[in-house]
Design a protein around this nucleic acid. Structure first.
Length: 112
DNA sequence: GCGTTGACGAGGA
DNA sequence: GTCCTCGCCAACG
């Protein structure tokens, strides 16, 4: 019976499970952990992603639009795009190209 | 204790 | 397709 505080922990956990070269959306994560209407909390939880150990690959998490909305929260805005491109994800104008192709849904991939 | 903000998403017009 | 509104709930001032 996870406490409410485990919400953040669950977010970090799922985010770490994102395969290299794949991305997902806050809503998908929220939906997977049982908070389909609390996508904002996922983003808020990501606020401490860089403070986690090991670091949570928050750069693989974008909004449903495929837009790098959280880039501003990284050490350097270019880092997020750079990291994604380094993993094979093409980013153009702060937006992921072929987003649907790189999309990774925990509900579909992890199932259960 | 209260109002505002926010790395979002879904639904309606 | 776009634009607007509401919900969601923790953190901040």
């Amino acid at each position: 019976m996870p406490d409410k505080t485990d919400f953040f922990k669950s977010v970090y956990e799922v985010t770490r499970l994102i395969p290299k070269g794949r991305v997902t959306s806050y809503g998908s994560i929220a939906n997977y952990i049982g908070a389909p209407r609390s996508a904002r909390m996922v983003g808020y939880a990501m606020n401490g992603a860089g403070a986690q150990m090991p670091m949570v690959p928050a750069h693989r998490v974008v909004n449903r639009n495929g837009l790098l909305t959280g880039k501003a929260h990284f050490n350097d805005e270019n880092d997020m795009q750079k990291l994604l491109e380094n993993e094979g994800v093409i980013v153009k104008n702060d937006q992921i190209v072929n987003f649907k192709q790189h999309f990774w849904d925990p509900k579909e991939e992890l199932k259960l």
